[in-house]
Every structure is written in structure tokens, then in C-alpha cells.
Design a binder for these strands. Structure first.
Lengths: 343, 343
DNA sequence: TAGGCCCTGGACAACGTTGTCAAGAGAATG
DNA sequence: CATTCTCTTGACAACGTTGTCCAGGGCCTA
């Protein structure tokens, strides 16, 4: 009786051919197949042809999992961001992908949904896969959990927000300066009562932009009233409520500063329903904002992504300098909504 | 003299601890560590504690590359789309990611940039990584190169456009019906001269939408003139030129049908500069389209992505029925631009 | 023709994990 | 006290590839 096959491989779906199979079919040694597959020198044209024929006949494709195990590098990098569906992150991710591609690496994406626990879970899963490098838009504010991984050689770049309690490369936008310029722009157009609607205070960019807001008003000698400022989740309901509150009452604001693209979108909707003409400046550019005449503080997501990725690959190529902190400038783009005078 | 270390591992960066190291430190066997790491039963609480201590002390993290090699499944899926920066694909990708996450899988993204060769390159790279499944928004029209891979067990779902010369699961939007409804809407508002600006004719959705356009006009007894139709790349310059041509001349069109979101965006810009009021219906919804009053044929990118991913995982869970072809409905959303009467 | 060199090809171990299997300790049973 | 049974544990091979090293054959030179 024939011995029954019961190795795990036998039960695995597909049973793809391996180099061993190709070698047997071509009548050569295993290593020779490896050489052909990797275009290594030292194989006669004739042998090479036989191997290629066997490869085609069997439908062989190299198993990169095994290759990775042997070589120690996965040629892949991980990108953990907040939400790939957010129009800010699509272009950012695409820019990272382009750089990765230029370096022969694939990109694994994950969305943290602004949840620190989920961020950590994702990042550690990527580390277990042994990605060569990581680009993280932090959700949490403590990244010491990454220390062993970084020490073990996983290059890491933090983007958009600084790393928490960990020394690492960072690529940030000038949130403070941008917000300050935007609010100053409103002041320059005569506004004295300016509302600020931003993201949750645990998010670094939110507080930086708020700081910029305060700085601009202080510069102008204006004392901020509590009711002008609202931080919190940026879902439409919350933002709408906040905006409507600022616009109601005996002394409503005459202008709004929106802390990010999601806030801007909702603010535009609210202002469209408002009978007075309220000025608006938003942080982050938005598609079609030109047609809607929305004045924004623009930061180029693609540049942010590309810069981060380039720093990452420089590390992977061996750059050993101390962690750097890059701050990218923002740009005020006047389109009308920010130039409306106070009512 | 001590023997010089020269194994490749010695030169590898980091030299992460392995289960063997943990085992040595905890004074247990290798397999016991494996059991603890994978929460397998049959380990005394005391042993388990010792192992955990060793893991923490060494900063061990399981190497999933090795795990994958042994188990044959990578718990990852690949998504090849056209351009992650396109606002249609962000939400789609995110929806796929959510489903993958629910199944414990990671997502590897790639953009084909609408280049068939790049699509193939990406897809095959993902196959070499042995992703468990693939979701592909095809750029090319011949996918026979995927046959050996699919036969070898890589589940594949094609999205948005049908697979070329290969029998596989597909999730499509009703491009024909959607375009037909959109154009009929314009006809119903009195238009007889309607322009169509769409994507390159080798893209399936482009020709389907054009077919819907023709059907609606034929239904209305209108004979389409050549000058009303323009297919080609959807970059702003080309679209702008096409739109301006249709709006010039002795008998200009009184309405435009835009074949996708990029075309719509440019069309809106062109129409904004035009002195006459031209009607517009666009395929795909756009952020802030409500505020701009743009009538669209809406297809929900997230639903498309989720549906595709669910089908994929059903396959991975063993579903063996013949390939299915799912067609998702579209929805006409009147917002003003489509209801403008002919000048 | 002998000696040396280069070029091609293959045997073998190793990468870090998991599946299989067997051994040993202890508890339970007669 | 002998026997069986259960439970924990570890030795070992295997996953498919690549790096190392050696063998054999052909060619050149002296």
C-alpha cells in the first residue's frame, strides 16, 4: 500500500510548483533555477533557456515569503494614517506609494480611525510582517511601544503630528504659522469676533492651530472669548452645532476659522444657509474650493507624503544622522470667502 | 581563536531575538514558546509566565514572514486600482480595508496609473508575495496572465470594469443604465443637443456610458452628431478643449453629460466661465456637489469596495460556485445643474 | 601533455516558524 | 504497588528560498 500523504503542504490549496519542481523538470539543480530567476550571472544561455521553458510550462512564480525569510528584507513599507477615505490622505498615500515604487517596495496601508489602540495594533502587525520601514500619522500620543521595533531596525517617520515620547524623524506642516496667517488675514479684513472650530484637543495639529489663532488675535490686541472656540470630533453634527452656536446670540462672530478640511466642508454648508455673509478661512485645501470661493490655508498632501517617504528611504539606505524634524510651509490662498468684511 | 561569525544573519541589521532566544532565556523548549505566542492550550500558567517575561525582556515579536512560509497563508490581500489620489478610490479602498480587517487581513495597495503594463507588474508582484486574494480595477483588457495564479489558488475579484479574457468574479456599476438615465433626464428637461465627454474608449465604463448616452437619445428619436461626443484622457486640458469645442460653433450643445468625476470637475469650471447657462449631469458624485448644485449619477464607492471584498472573502472561505457578476445600481441625484432648460 | 585557471552547476545549510510525534511526569485506578 | 491515562513539554522535520562552498570540465599556457 502506498504511504498516505499527510504533510501540511499536501492539503494546501493550489500546491504551486517550487524551484525544486522547476529544477527537476529542466534537469538542472535547484540553485541553477534560483540563479535564472534572479538573473544572476554564471548560467549558460542553453541552460537558461531550458529553465525558462520549465518555468513557463509549470506556471512557476517565486515565493517571496520564502525569499524574505532568507534575505531579511521585505521590500515593503507600512503607512498608518487616519482614514484613507479622507481626501487629504489619498494624495498623501499615493505620493508615498510612488516613492516606494521607485525603490522597488510595496506599500501596506492601514487606517487607524483616529483610535490610538487601533494605531498600535496596526503598527505592531506591520512590524510582525517585518516591513522595512514605517510611516505613521499618529493617533495616540505615546509611541514608546515602538521603541523595541525601532531599535531592531524598523525605520520610522512620523507625519503630520509629532511622535509621542519617542525620538524619531518627523515631517510636519506649519500648523501654528498657517493658522496664525489665516486668522491674521481675517483680522486684516476688519474682523474682531472670529470663531475657531477645530479637532479634538489631544490631536497635536488641533492645538497648534488653536495656538496660531490665539497668537494672531493677541497680535491684534483682541481678547478671545470662550464662546468663540470649539474643539471636538469633526463629524458634521458636532461641527454644525458649534458653528450655529457661534452664529447665534446677541454678539455672533463675523468670521470663522475652520481647523481642517472636514470642518471647512460642514462650515460651508452652514454658512450657505445663513442669511448674513460670514467670512471663512479653512485649513487644508479642498477640491472645487476655487469654484466655491473658499479661502484656505493650503498644505500639499502629496509633498508631505513624498517628503516623508524620501526621508524614510534615506534611512533605509543607511543614513544615520540624529532624528530630524522637518516643517513644511503652508500657503494662504485667498478666494473670496476670507475677504468678506464683517457685517 | 574564536571562530569568526559570518553567517548572513550576523550581518543583518538589528538581529532581532527569535523564539529560540526566548526559549533559551526562559529555559524552555522552542515549541513551548510558539505555543505561548499563539495562545495554544497545554502550557502551565507558571511556564507561560516565564515565557512572557522572556518575551518582554528581549523585545521579541513573532516574525510573520516565517509564519507565512510555514502556514501557506499570508492573511493579506492586494488591491490594485487606478489612482489612490482619486476621490473615488479613497473610500473604495477604505471599505475594502474594513472588510479585510474584519477577517484579520492586511491590505496592500497599488496604483496602476491606468497603465496595463504597470497593472500586470503590480498584480504579479502581489502574487509573488502570495497575497491570499486580489481585488483589481483593471487597466488593461487582457488578464490571461492571471490564469496560472488563479488556478494556483489566488482568489480574484475584478471591480468597476470586467476582466479581460478570463472567467472571474466581477463587481460592476450599472454604467449603461446610469448614463442612460442621466441623459434621459436632460432630454426630459427639453434638451435635444447634448454633449458627451468621457474617458478613453479602451476603458469599459467609458464605452458603457457612451452606450447609455446613445440609447437615451435613440429612445428620444434624436440622431447623435459626431461633434457631440468626445472620448479621451480625462486630464483637465483635454476635457476643457472638448467642452469648449462643443460650446462653440453655430449650433452648440445646450447640455453636457460628463463621463466621470474628473470630467465633471473640469466641466464645472468651464461652464462657470460660460455666459450661457448650460445644463450638466455628471457620472460619479463629488464632494460639495450639493453646494454647487451639480446633478449627478451617483455610485457609492464604499459599497462597491465592500461588496467586492465580501465576495473575495467568501471565496477565501471556500465558496466554490461559478464566477458571479454583480451589477450595482446607480442613482440620479438632481441638484439643479441637470434641470436647467435649454437656452 | 601536465598544470593551472576559469566557468558552470549542484549539494547543503540556514532563515524562523509550525505540525507531528514521542517521551516523561504525575494523577488516577485497580 | 503496578498499570493506565492525561497532561505538559521538547526534538525534529518541513515550508521555499538564497549564500557558501566545492567539484568537474574545458581551455589556455608552458
Amino acid at each position: 500500500m502506498a504511504e498516505t500523504a499527510r504533510h501540511p503542504s499536501e492539503s494546501r490549496y493550489g500546491n504551486r510548483p517550487t524551484m525544486k519542481d522547476v529544477a527537476a523538470r529542466a534537469g538542472v539543480g535547484l540553485k541553477t533555477v534560483s540563479r535564472v530567476v534572479n538573473s544572476e550571472p554564471g548560467v549558460t544561455p542553453d541552460t537558461e533557456r531550458r529553465v525558462h521553458e520549465a518555468i513557463d510550462a509549470l506556471g512557476f512564480r517565486r515565493n517571496d515569503s520564502a525569499r524574505v525569510l532568507r534575505k531579511g528584507r521585505t521590500a515593503s513599507i507600512g503607512l498608518v494614517l487616519e482614514d484613507l477615505a479622507d481626501p487629504f490622505y489619498g494624495p498623501l498615500s499615493r505620493a508615498v506609494e510612488e516613492v516606494a515604487r521607485a525603490h522597488g517596495a510595496l506599500l501596506i496601508n492601514g487606517s487607524s480611525a483616529e483610535d490610538p489602540e487601533r494605531e498600535q495594533e496596526l503598527v505592531l502587525a506591520l512590524c510582525a510582517r517585518r516591513v522595512d520601514g514605517l510611516i505613521v500619522i499618529p493617533a495616540g500620543d505615546d509611541h514608546r511601544y515602538l521603541e523595541p521595533e525601532m531599535k531592531a531596525g524598523i525605520a520610522t517617520v512620523f507625519v503630520d503630528r509629532p511622535a509621542g515620547r519617542v525620538d524619531a524623524d518627523m515631517v510636519l506642516s506649519d500648523s501654528f504659522g498657517g493658522a496664525r496667517a489665516g486668522v491674521a488675514h481675517l483680522v486684516a479684513h476688519g474682523h474682531r469676533r472670529i470663531g475657531f472650530i477645530g479637532d479634538q484637543p489631544r490631536i497635536h495639529t488641533a492645538t497648534e492651530r488653536l495656538r496660531g489663532y490665539h497668537a494672531a488675535l493677541t497680535d491684534a490686541g483682541i481678547t478671545v472669548e470662550d464662546s468663540w472656540v470649539s474643539l471636538g470630533p469633526t463629524d458634521p453634527a458636532r461641527v454644525r452645532a458649534a458653528a450655529e452656536a457661534m452664529l447665534a446670540g446677541p454678539e455672533p462672530v463675523t468670521a470663522l476659522f475652520a481647523g481642517n478640511n472636514r470642518v471647512t466642508v460642514t462650515a460651508v454648508r452652514v454658512l450657505a444657509e445663513c442669511d448674513r455673509r460670514i467670512a471663512l478661512v479653512g485649513f487644508d485645501d479642498i477640491e472645487l474650493a476655487d469654484l466655491l470661493g473658499i479661502t484656505v490655508i493650503s498644505q500639499d498632501a502629496a509633498t508631505v507624503g513624498r517628503t516623508a517617504a524620501e526621508h524614510l528611504f534615506r534611512r533605509l539606505d543607511g543614513a544615520a544622522h540624529p532624528p530630524v524634524r522637518v516643517e513644511l510651509p503652508t500657503r494662504l490662498v485667498p478666494r473670496g470667502s476670507g475677504e468678506i468684511p464683517p457685517a
